[in-house]
């Protein structure tokens, strides 16, 4: 069980570090959103999953409460994160930020 928790933490941390590096390295808003949203959501899922496993493995009422509340926090993250990034992408496009080096931009052509 301990090994499982460490593996989950490892995957989560790798994804989070990748997300923040992607945020610095990519050239424009949309590609940065790709990196930031996917990687940080994936990373938080795995670090939270590690805490959930820890809570259920330790046993006892207090730790089970910790695990259940973590599940609710995970659901909140999963619902709000993609919606927020969608809102940012739409706002960026409407405020006139063009995708750098775009091959095709159907939204620009049709609106």
């Amino acid at each position: 069980m301990t090994i499982l928790i460490y593996v989950l933490f490892g995957i989560g941390l790798a994804a989070s570090v990748l997300g923040s590096v992607a945020l610095v390295r990519f050239p424009d808003v949309y590609t940065r959103l790709h990196g930031a949203t996917k990687c940080t959501t994936f990373g938080s899922i795995f670090t939270t999953a590690a805490v959930i496993v820890y809570g259920f493995a330790r046993g006892g009422a207090a730790h089970q409460t910790l695990a259940i509340h973590s599940i609710i926090a995970l659901v909140a993250l999963l619902l709000t994160n993609p919606t927020g990034s969608h809102a940012i992408a739409r706002a960026a496009h409407r405020s006139g930020v063009k995708p750098v080096g775009a091959v095709v931009d159907r939204l620009e052509e049709e609106s």
């Binding site: 959103l33 930031a36 990373g43 938080s44 927020g84 940012i88 960026a92 930020v97």
Partner: peptide, 19 residues
């Protein structure tokens, strides 16, 4: 360079604070 970039950074930090 744009406001949208800063908002993306803020959103990322929010997710990490929750984790």
């Amino acid at each position: 360079p744009t406001v949208a970039d800063r908002v993306v950074g803020l959103d990322t930090i929010n997710t990490m604070v929750v984790a």
